[in-house]
């Protein structure tokens, strides 16, 4: 069975036809050709597919496509404005918080969700917020440094 889903992704309205069994991750990859959101474990543990739905961080791999009917979705592709990186992207880059890069989109979206809700988190709050995002290069220290540095950035 197919269904028609209308949603806003990174500020642009789309109407797409997807299978009943598609997830939001399938929709982003295969209906909208947005490949920045990564496919990791497929069971919600690794955090690589984290995106924002109506401002809250969710796992795109666990979210049925039907659940984003009418929703506003923000992915890693939606953060930069023209040529200007989002402050979270910029501090990740400046502080070397990227190694292989596979976890980076999820890390940045989860950090974004945290900072939108709590602009001045403590180091422990950052660690707690990112507990569900795995970096198999184990570059956690610099990732946390980068999120903490956003507070001083603009």
């Amino acid at each position: 069975m197919n269904q028609e889903i209308s949603l806003v992704v990174n500020g642009t309205s789309h109407t797409v036809r997807v299978g009943d069994h598609w997830t939001l991750l399938d929709l982003l990859h295969d209906a909208l050709d947005l490949k920045g959101t990564k496919d990791g474990c497929g069971e919600g543990v690794c955090g690589a597919c984290t995106v924002l739905v109506n401002g809250r961080a969710v796992r795109a791999c666990l979210t049925l496509a039907a659940y984003v009917q009418g929703a506003e979705v923000v992915t890693i592709e939606g953060l930069a404005r023209d040529d200007e990186l989002d402050p979270v992207q910029r501090t990740f880059l400046e502080l070397g918080a990227v190694q292989c890069g596979y976890c980076t989109p999820g890390m940045i979206m989860m950090s974004k969700a945290l900072l939108d809700e709590n602009p001045n988190p403590t180091r422990d709050e950052v660690r707690e917020a990112l507990a569900g995002n795995l970096c198999r290069c184990s570059g956690y220290t610099k990732i946390i440094d980068a999120v903490m540095a956003v507070r001083g950035a603009d």
Binding site: G44, M110, A113, G132
Partner: peptide
Amino acid sequence: VATPAIRNS
């Protein structure tokens, strides 16, 4: 329970 993004859904 689990982690923040799981508790959101």
